[in-house]
Amino acid sequence: MSRHQMLQAALVIFGVVFCLIYPLAIVWPSGWAWHDGPPASSHYFMMIVGVYATLGLFLIRASRDPAANRSLIEFTIWSSVVHAVIMAVQSYSDPMRMGHMTGDVPALVLVALVLGVLLYGGDRRTATA
Rank of each mutant, 00 (worst) to 15 (best):
S63R: 01
W28M: 13
Q8G: 12
Q8A: 07
L11D: 01
P23I: 01
V27C: 10
F45K: 01
A9L: 15
A62P: 10
P23D: 08
M46E: 11
V27F: 14
V12M: 05
F18S: 13
S63I: 05
M6Y: 06
H4V: 07
S63P: 09
E74D: 09
V27L: 13
A33L: 08
I73K: 09
Q8P: 06
H35G: 09
A53S: 15
Y22A: 07
G50M: 03
D65H: 10
D36F: 00
F45A: 01
G37M: 02
S71G: 11
V49S: 04
S41Y: 02
N69V: 00
L11C: 08
S30T: 13
L72Y: 01
P39S: 04
G37S: 05
L7N: 03
F58D: 10
G31S: 02
G56A: 09
L20A: 12
I13Y: 12
P29A: 09
R3D: 07
A62C: 05
Y22M: 11
L72R: 04
A10G: 00
G31K: 06
S42N: 07
R3G: 14
S71F: 15
R61D: 11
S30N: 05
S41P: 00
S41K: 01
P39D: 02
H4Y: 00
H43K: 12
R3I: 12
C19G: 14
M46D: 00
P29W: 09
V51P: 00
L20Y: 08
F58R: 13
S63K: 02
G31V: 08
H35C: 06
F14S: 06
V51W: 11
E74Q: 14
T54A: 15
L11M: 03
G31M: 03
I21Y: 07
R3M: 01
Y44M: 07
C19H: 03
S42R: 04
L24Y: 12
N69G: 03
M47Y: 11
L57D: 00
G31I: 04
P39K: 00
A62S: 07
F45H: 08
V49H: 08
I73L: 05
V16M: 11
Y44V: 05
G56N: 09
P66D: 07
R3A: 09
D36C: 00
V51Q: 09
N69L: 04
F18Q: 15
Y22F: 14
P38M: 13
A53F: 13
P29K: 01
G56Y: 01
F58V: 05
G31A: 10
L55A: 15
G31T: 03
P29V: 04
V16Y: 05
L7T: 00
G37K: 03
V12A: 05
C19F: 04
S71P: 05
G56F: 02
V16H: 07
L55I: 15
G56I: 01
M6A: 11
L20N: 11
A9N: 13
I73A: 00
V51D: 02
